[in-house]
Amino acid sequence: MKATYYGTKGKDLKADRLVDKISGTIHPKYRFPHTGSIELTEDTLRLEGWEDLALGEIERVACEYDEAFSRFTVNASDRLGFFGKGEPLVVTHGDRKMYLLIDWNFFTGFTDNRRWCEAIVKKVNGLVAPE
């Protein structure tokens, strides 16, 4: 499984200035410094240009909004992703949360995050899928 992604860490999202937050509603490249191809292999989630995560070390994966990433983070109310299918893929790995947008669509704000979340959950034995 392969696609393109934008990624950042939760602590970086929380530290963004107002100008970053406003420009992030135009395009995620302003708030998500990591970008490239993402690949799910048998035992690794590869994030080109950032890092490789061993699936066994992933503690949690979910598609959800939270205190660091709200529905306004990359989607203004004029994009359909504001209303649904725009949640980030949140990967908890060690003491950090990584936020990913996989195959984000500029016009709709939709992502392929839900499909990726399901695929990662299936690969990781014992990982609880979000409800």
Rank of each mutant, 00 (worst) to 15 (best):
Y30Q: 06
K11M: 12
P130L: 06
F72V: 06
K29G: 01
K21Y: 00
L101N: 09
K11I: 15
A3R: 08
F82T: 05
W116F: 09
A119V: 08
G56I: 12
V121A: 14
M98E: 11
L80E: 01
G7P: 05
L55M: 08
V61S: 08
L100T: 14
T111G: 06
T41Q: 10
L13G: 10
F32H: 03
D12M: 13
C117P: 00
K123C: 06
N105T: 13
Y65K: 05
D43Y: 01
T44A: 09
V128P: 08
Y5F: 10
E67D: 14
E59Q: 11
F110P: 01
I120W: 00
A76S: 13
F106C: 03
K29H: 03
I22T: 11
F82V: 09
A3W: 09
T92V: 13
D66E: 01
D95N: 14
S23T: 14
L45I: 14
Y99S: 04
K2E: 12
L45W: 07
T92C: 02
A119R: 07
P88Y: 01
D103R: 02
R60F: 00
E42R: 13
E59G: 12
F110V: 04
L80P: 00
K123P: 01
D52Q: 12
E59P: 00
E42L: 10
E57M: 07
A129H: 10
G86S: 02
K2T: 15
A76K: 02
P28I: 13
C63W: 02
T111V: 10
E118A: 14
T73P: 03
P33Q: 12
G7L: 08
S37K: 12
A68F: 00
D12R: 12
G24C: 10
C63P: 05
Y65N: 06
I120N: 04
K29R: 04
V128W: 04
I22N: 07
E118Y: 07
R46T: 12
N105P: 00
R114C: 01
L101M: 09
I38L: 12
K11A: 15
I120R: 07
V61A: 11
G10N: 13
A68C: 04
N75K: 02
G84Y: 05
E87V: 10
L18V: 14
D20V: 06
T92W: 01
V128T: 15
D20W: 04
W50A: 14
T73K: 07
H27W: 02
G84Q: 08
E59S: 06
I120A: 02
T108Q: 05
T41W: 04
R17H: 11
R114W: 04
D78R: 00
I22L: 11
Y99V: 12
E39D: 09
E118T: 13
E118S: 13
T111M: 02
S23E: 01
E64D: 09
K9E: 15
Y5E: 12
V91E: 10
D103H: 05
L13H: 10
D95A: 15
S77D: 00
F83Q: 09
